[in-house]
């Protein structure tokens, strides 16, 4: 099972290759790493150079000036701060909600046996692998059909009378629905590895289902939740398909879509777009570098099923 791998993860025992080969290996890995990082480094280099310089001297030239101007211009002219905020309003509730719902679902299917639990788990898993394009048209019509109750019309929850289309609520819900399958799958695998006696002990102590879930199982699932949360943050943050389809107010778009605003219709300044792209990528890069363990844990946790 996946989690068995996570649990067993330990410092690899030193199987030292002989010195000469080790140096060759380092040499090879260093070359590969440079090649791997190059496209990103090149983007950073272009972002540090002014448009006028690269358009006159060409992109492959030594710099006369290196400046952070492109970053400040991108930040200000594309109003990145606002779009970061928009993304936050979508990502944070979506990640919390999907982890909460998936953990309940996983708890119910992995810790209890009932008639359809396997069928449901299979359904969740299968739907999670679908290409999103398959569902977009009907989903769009469903979103258009759902009107807000009268009291909400005109409030930020339903500015123009619709509850889901062009609303953050709709974005949060589609992310949650689309990621539920994966999260349930991962968490149920994890919960299955917890000793079954935990449930029995809880029953002996007179705990109900809810208490067993919230007091016994959930605290033990924390590492998996952390790993999964990190992964989900990146995925939802990086999405641009749902926003493209289900939002129509320019100023409400999440950051990944806002990058388009820098790629102008008329004037294209690749140095500026490079700076913008890096700023947009920054949060995921930071999350990745800081929470690397969780991140990679989340991925292997979800996918290594044996």
């Amino acid at each position: 099972m996946s989690t068995a791998i996570l649990a067993r993860e330990q410092p690899a025992p030193e199987r030292r290759p002989p010195d000469r080969r080790r140096i060759a290996l380092h040499g090879f890995l260093i070359v590969v790493s440079i090649v791997w990082l190059f496209p990103l480094l090149w983007t950073i280099y272009q972002a540090l150079r002014p448009y006028s310089e690269t358009s006159n001297k060409g992109f492959l030239s030594l710099p006369d000036t290196l400046t952070l101007d492109n970053f400040t211009t991108a930040w200000n002219s594309a109003e990145l701060a606002r779009y970061f905020l928009n993304t936050l309003v979508i990502v944070v509730p979506a990640v919390i909600l999907v982890l909460f719902l998936a953990s309940m679902m996983a708890f119910a299917v992995s810790r209890y046996s009932w008639r359809f639990n396997l069928v449901l788990l299979m359904l969740f898993t299968a739907l999670n692998l679908l290409p999103p394009q398959v569902i977009i048209t009907p989903l769009f019509r469903i979103y258009l059909a759902i009107r807000a109750p009268e009291v909400l019309v005109g409030t930020p929850l339903a500015e123009r009378g619709l509850l889901l289309y062009d609303q953050y609520l709709g974005m949060v819900l589609i992310h949650v629905a689309f990621q539920l399958g994966f999260c349930t799958f991962v968490l149920s695998n994890y919960m299955k590895t917890l000793p079954k006696e935990l449930n029995e002990a809880a029953v002996v102590d007179g705990a109900g289902v809810w208490t067993t879930y919230s007091r016994v199982i959930m605290p033990l699932t924390r590492p998996a939740l952390a790993a999964l949360g990190t992964l989900q943050f990146t995925w939802i943050y990086n999405d641009f398909f749902w926003a493209l389809m289900l939002m129509s107010t320019g100023s409400k778009l999440p950051i990944t879509s806002a990058l388009n605003n820098l790629k102008g219709q008329f004037f294209v300044d690749n140095n500026l777009v490079a700076a913008g792209a890096l700023l947009v990528a920054l949060p995921t890069l930071v999350v990745y570098l800081v929470l690397q363990r969780q991140f990679i844990g989340g991925l292997t946790l979800g996918s290594t099923k044996g």
Binding site: L101, A102, M104, M105, F107, A108, V109, Y112, W114, L120, L123, F124, L127, L130, V134, I135, I136, T137, P138, L139, I142, L173, I174, V176, A177, F178, L180, G181, T184, G208, V209, W210, Y213
Partner: peptide, 25 residues
């Protein structure tokens, strides 16, 4: 009932937002 509730909400979301649109497609 608690268990039903725990299963019902996620299942509803997946059915309404993913399964039904798939069939409609």
């Amino acid at each position: 009932l608690t268990l039903v509730g725990m299963v019902a909400v996620p299942t509803f979301l997946v059915v309404a937002f993913i399964l039904v649109p798939t069939i409609l497609s």
